[in-house]
Design a protein around this nucleic acid. Structure first.
Lengths: 335, 335
DNA sequence: CTGAAAGCGCTTACAG
DNA sequence: CTGAAAGCGCTTACAG
């Protein structure tokens, strides 16, 4: 069933049917009604590929997630982001194409994607400080928005969580409880999340004029195992509180603290980052920083559509605020 | 840059360029080389919508996940399935369109999807015993495969984990350790996973000629909280072992057992199902059933492509085996 | 308000 | 082995 046949059945031309399908006001009420009647009766759905070819727009956007680096498996946030993007797309009548990019074949595939005319734009979610795919996209002319943080001063459109501010809030929470000997298990500095969260830690200490002690800073890889290992390095320094740059690392730290015969929060206060569901189940439940992942997905879609509709508009850069969720893993400092 | 221009630059006709692009053998080696040269120089990528319109195939498949019921948020398995599907699609030169179906607007949207000619087929992942979307797809003529279990005797193509066998293995493990008073926290019976896993529990007890005791069976909703609650109901029955139909419920049960002042596995043995990453971190680490989710995604894609290429082939129904992962939450029964 | 016609960029019998 | 031509199913100036 195609336009031609609907036209025949309604006794009008293809052009007219096309107009009523596309809500063109230049159709008489009567004609519109009778065409619509036939359309409904026939359960007619326009051929999307034909339409795309004629119009030059497909109404599909790509969600690109470079994996291997971002380790989709261990990232409990991924699903929420995807859902945010998906919901927003539905709301805008767009469909989303999911591409889990394999770092090995990136270059070639991204090129295909960019010039195949299959998609109107791309949302790329990369935690890397300077992702190769983002580089490639920057040099093309396909609209795209980054979920993550581009290099400072970059003029590309992006949406991100305000990791720095979130970390700052978390550490300030510890400072307000009187802690001064605050350690951090930092994330990998190859990821912007790692960099920003560490910067927030620095910022909070600076605000309270606490000297930065390098022996209280140790890097982890965002995993539970690395959190455990990092905490073991930290224990001899006798920190009164620890800010872990991810909940998974905080859980590892919790385990290390317990294995050392110490208690949270009585001996050491602990704050995480992410608010993964799991952290309400630990004993004690973890104080952490909640991220508006769903919102990030929505804003990313809004931004991209704006870019598609107005290719020459200025880049949009959005930072979404986090929320400190206070549970029971922190307590007043004992001096 | 389009076929026409490539043709002009190479000094041949559009037809010929099209043939070399599509690897048609009816092209002289010389012509092929010179055309390919121009194609590479110009970084030419064929317009996918134009090609789709001409050929009647898009090479995109939809991955449909009805959410709200399947609660993508709380399902740690979702990501792995998506990745399996995505990888397999890349390997086959297909792209995947992700549609997180909103139960409210199902009917209309699925109809659009089915007749828009945008996709060649769909993989639908639904845990429901009798999903409405699956019903609708059955009555259309778009190739689709279900990830999950259709009603018995159905002739639709599907791929699923052998949940029954997995549960059977898990309970047999307890039986072999001498347990006879084995309780189960069953999943919701509206989901095929819930139904199958309970059937496996029954089957194992039957195999060992242990009488089914209804007071040892209580339903949960696959969540940690419901596992906790269910275990509280079970405690007064003094079970020697518990098979929880999901790891999350097992974690809830573990918490309930602890809160009651009992120990795992000394007082109660515990087995879960899913093998989510988390269960290696608990104390004791959980014995559970591992699912080949990645494989499910791959087989689903293979099956769908087969169906697309041979629309009249017989339905393919695949059950993938699970693996019992023995850790430290089970012990010999004390009589 | 409506229709005839050109065009979007491909593929593929058909003829040679 | 190659090219001219028709066709895939839409949209959209253009003319009326």
């Amino acid at each position: 069933m195609n336009l031609e046949q609907i036209a025949k059945l309604s006794g009008v031309s293809r052009s007219t049917v096309s107009r009523v399908i596309n809500n063109d006001p230049n159709v008489s009420a009567f004609t519109r009604q009778s065409v619509l009647h036939v359309v409904n009766l026939a359960h007619y759905v326009p051929n999307a590929t034909a339409r795309s070819l004629a119009v030059g727009r497909t109404h599909v956007i790509a969600l690109v997630v470079p994996i291997g680096v971002s380790t989709i498996f261990t990232d409990p946030n991924f699903c929420t982001l995807v859902q945010g993007v998906s919901n927003a797309c539905s709301a805008h009548g767009r469909t989303v194409m999911l591409w889990l990019a394999d770092p090995d074949h990136e270059g070639d595939q991204i090129h295909q994607l960019m010039y195949s005319h299959l998609i109107d734009g791309v949302i790329i979610a990369s935690p890397l400080v300077n992702d190769a795919l983002v580089q490639i996209l920057s040099h093309g002319n396909l609209p795209f928005v980054l979920v993550g943080r581009p290099p400072a001063g970059s003029s590309i459109s992006y949406v991100d969580i305000d990791h720095g501010r979130g970390a700052h809030d978390a550490v300030r929470h510890l400072l307000r409880q009187g802690h001064r000997r605050i350690a951090t298990i930092a994330g990998p500095q190859t990821m912007s999340t790692g960099v920003e969260r560490l910067a927030g830690y620095h910022g909070a200490l600076r605000e309270y004029e606490v000297r930065i002690d390098p022996t209280l800073i140790v890097d982890g890889g965002f995993t539970e195992a690395e959190g455990y290992w990092a905490m073991q390095q930290l224990l001899p320094q006798r920190p009164g509180a620890v800010f872990a740059a991810s909940d998974l690392m905080a859980l590892g730290a919790l385990r290390a603290i317990r294995d050392a015969g110490l208690r949270v929060p009585q001996d050491i206060s602990l704050v995480g980052f992410d608010d993964i569901p799991l952290v309400t189940l630990t004993d004690p439940a973890l104080t952490t920083v909640r991220q508006p992942l769903h919102g990030v997905g929505r804003v990313a879609v809004d931004t991209l559509i704006e870019l598609i509709d107005h290719p020459h508009s200025a880049p949009r850069q959005t930072l979404l605020p986090t929320e400190l969720v206070v549970r029971s893993s922190c307590g007043e400092a004992i001096h």
